[in-house]
Design a binder for these strands. Structure first.
Lengths: 108, 108
DNA sequence: GGGCGTTATGTTATCATGAGCATAAAGATC
DNA sequence: GATCTTTATGCTCATGATAACATAACGCCC
């Protein structure tokens, strides 16, 4: 028996969770939505859709993008985007540790 | 902005989570699957289906039931069922507190 | 200018999950 | 034996989410 969980941020509706978190981190590494999406076994279409929806709900841009040029284009995190990713990263780790401990106490 | 989460137990596949937890607690109170289901705004059909699936995955019964008789029938928790509900209850509370604290630290 | 890789977006198809409907059986009570 | 309340279970239909397809535009580079 093992514990699993999903955790996400809301403002009335779903805003930001595991999926976007991993995706944005991968975009940060690769500088490309397309390559990050492939790496995560999702379509560019899906990745882009999630990002856009999150951006409109958050009220600020997560990425700055460019079309054409040396590598065909690219994307990188905005300041606010990076901040969100970092906060979520720490948050996630703290939660993960707490859940493991609580699980061990009650079911281990 | 607020945090939300779902947490559940698995053994390869989903076994036990919030929904069943609340349902079983309500059955414990009322002695009837049917009444508990209504209280939770779900159909008897759905409640029963979830319980049965969980039972077959867990490998033990959660409820003892009877058909007909004084109240038409009824259901109550088995020893194992009650133990699971209690453990999950404590687990849930510990996790909830930890998540609130972590959220406050990182986003508050 | 053609090719390549990327962002950007609409549209359609498919699939999984849940809701709803329908029905049987049991037993106490009157 | 009819009624009531409950457990027990199959089947169909709707709905929403996800996947898949299709297409346009942009800008460097050869």
């Amino acid at each position: 028996m093992q514990v699993r969980y999903k955790i996400w941020l809301e403002e009335g509706e779903h805003i930001f969770g595991e999926g976007l978190f991993s995706l944005l981190r991968e975009i940060d590494r690769r500088g490309s939505i397309n390559q990050a999406a492939q790496e995560m076994h999702m379509s560019y279409r899906q990745a882009w859709g999630r990002i856009k929806k999150a951006e409109e709900r958050l009220g600020f841009r997560l990425l700055t993008t460019r079309i054409g040029g040396e590598a065909g284009g690219g994307a990188e995190l905005t300041r606010e985007g990076r901040r969100l990713v970092e906060n979520f990263h720490r948050f996630r780790e703290e939660v993960d540790r707490a859940i493991r401990e609580a699980f061990a106490r009650n079911f281990g």
